[in-house]
Design a protein around this nucleic acid. Structure first.
Lengths: 244, 244
DNA sequence: GAGTCAAGAACGAACGTTCGTTCGCATAAT
DNA sequence: ATTATGCGAACGAACGTTCGTTCTTGACTC
C-alpha cells in the first residue's frame, strides 16, 4: 500500500514561494474583499445550486471562494457546518417574509405579496434554487431537522393566527377548516418553490395575481347558502370507496 | 495483485446447448428468490429513502439486496443506472394515476381520487418517499431530465385537456385562466408529496375530501356576478408595487 | 446413478479515485 | 516577537467499480 509514516511531511520542496499577493486587497484595491465567512457561504451556494449538497466537493467550494482548504477550515469546521449555515440563512429569509403577510390589508393579498417577494428575484437565491435540495436534506439530516422544524412550526402558527383572524373578520369563510386550508396553503407555497427550481423560466412573479385570485375564490365567503352543483361536501362520501 | 493468469472458462465456440432457462423458479424452494433486478431496485429504494441518492453507497445497496457487488453489477452497469431505473418507475406510477382522473365523474373528484390513491399507502412508496430527492436530482442530472420532463409534459397536457373540457361543461368557471389553474394544481400536488415526505404522520388520505372541497370552491362557477369583498381581480393592481 | 463439463451467477478482495479534513509552514499585520 | 491569516500537499477513509475466482446448475455421457 501507500506510505504509512506520518513523518515525511517535512519534505519542504523548494517551491519558490513566488505565489504573489494572492488574496487580500491589503493596500488599496478599490474592491475590498468581504468577510471570508460570507465569501465561503456565497461560493457554497453557487456550488450547491450547481451540483447539490453532496455533489459539490470542498475543493470546488474552495476554488469558487478563491480560498485554500486550510483557509476555509479556519471559518467552518466541516462541510456540514456550511450546509447548516446555509439552511439557517434560507430559513431566516423565509421567516422574514412573514411580515409581508402581517402587514397586508387582507390575508389573500398578504399571500400574494409573499409569493411576489419570493419570486421577484430580489430575495437571495438561496431560497429558490436550493429549495428541493434543502427539503430532501432536512428530511434526513438530524443536524438540519431542528432548525427546519422550528421555522416550519413558527410560520405555521403565525399564518394560522392570521387565517383565523381573517375568518373572524368575515374575510374568509368561517366554515373552512383551518387545518385543511393551512395544509393547502403550505403545499402551494412549497409546490411553487419546487416548480420554480426545475422550470426557472416560469414567470411566477407575473402569475401571482392570477394565483391570488384563485386562492381568493377558494377562501371567500359563500355568497349564497344554497350552492350550485359544486361537489364540495358531497365528495366526501364517494371518495372513500375507490379501489385503484 | 495476486495471481493473474488463469484463463477463466475459455470462450465457448458454440452457443447452442440449450441454455435459456433463466433463474426463474426452477427449483421452487419455499421462499422463491425474485428477479434479481427487482431485488436490487427494491433494496435501492430502501437505501435511497434512508440516506438519499448520494448518501447511499453501492455496498449498502448490495447488503440490503443480499448480493455482492459483482452480482449487482451484472444487472446494472452503474449506480446512476439504478437511479434512472427508479425514477423511471416512479414516473410510470405517476402517469398511471392519470386514469383515475380521466374516469372520475367530475374534475375535482378526479383530483381527489388521485390524491387519495397517492397517499393511501397502496401505491409503491417510491413516489412519496423519494419525491423531493427525485425533484432535486432531476433538476440537475441530465440522465434524468428527459424522462422527467416528458412525464411532466404528458401529465400537464392530459390534465389541461380535462380541465378545459370541464370548463366547457360548465363544471368549472369559464373565466378561470387554465394556465394559472394548472400551475396551482401542479403546485398543490408537488407540495403535498413534499410535505408528506418530511411529515409522514400527516393524515393526508383522510384530509383529501376537505382539500377537494377547497379546490372545488376555487374552481366552481361563481353563482353571483357581484361578489363580496373578495380581492380577486382588484389584487392585480396593488400587488405589483410592493417593495420589500 | 455417477461422472463430466461448460457456462452463467455470485462472490468479495482489491483497485484507482476522490472525498473531507489536517498540518507544517509562509506571509502580513500588529 | 507575536499573532492572525492563508496556503496547499498530504492523509486516511470511503467511494464506485473491476476482476480473478468459486459456486451452482443442468444437459449429456457412460
Amino acid at each position: 500500500m501507500t506510505a504509512t509514516a506520518k513523518r515525511p511531511r517535512a519534505a519542504a520542496p523548494k517551491k519558490e514561494s513566488g505565489r504573489a499577493r494572492a488574496a487580500a486587497g491589503t493596500s488599496a484595491p478599490g474592491v475590498a474583499r468581504p468577510d471570508p465567512r460570507r465569501r465561503v457561504l456565497d461560493a457554497a451556494v453557487v456550488c450547491f445550486t450547481r451540483s447539490g449538497f453532496h455533489g459539490s466537493s470542498m475543493h470546488e467550494i474552495c476554488a469558487e471562494a478563491g480560498m485554500s482548504p486550510g483557509a476555509l477550515y479556519r471559518y467552518f469546521p466541516s462541510k456540514e457546518a456550511i450546509i447548516v449555515a446555509i439552511v439557517d440563512e434560507e430559513r431566516a429569509v423565509r421567516v422574514s417574509c412573514l411580515e409581508l403577510l402581517e402587514n397586508a390589508p387582507t390575508f389573500v393579498e398578504g399571500l400574494a405579496r409573499m409569493g411576489q417577494a419570493l419570486f421577484s428575484g430580489e430575495t437571495p437565491m438561496v431560497c429558490l434554487a436550493l429549495g428541493p435540495e434543502i427539503y430532501a436534506e432536512a428530511a434526513r439530516n438530524p443536524a438540519l431537522k431542528p432548525t427546519f422544524d422550528a421555522v416550519e412550526d413558527e410560520m405555521n402558527a403565525a399564518i394560522r393566527k392570521l387565517f383565523v383572524a381573517a375568518q373572524a373578520r368575515g374575510e374568509i369563510d368561517a366554515a373552512i377548516d383551518p387545518d385543511a386550508a393551512m395544509l393547502l396553503i403550505n403545499a402551494i407555497g412549497d409546490g411553487l418553490v419546487l416548480r420554480n427550481s426545475f422550470e426557472p423560466d416560469l414567470p411566477l412573479e407575473r402569475m401571482m395575481p392570477a394565483l391570488a385570485g384563485l386562492i381568493g375564490r377558494m377562501l371567500a365567503p359563500a355568497p349564497a347558502p344554497t350552492a350550485s352543483p359544486a361537489p364540495s361536501p358531497a365528495a366526501s362520501a364517494s371518495i372513500s370507496d375507490i379501489t385503484p
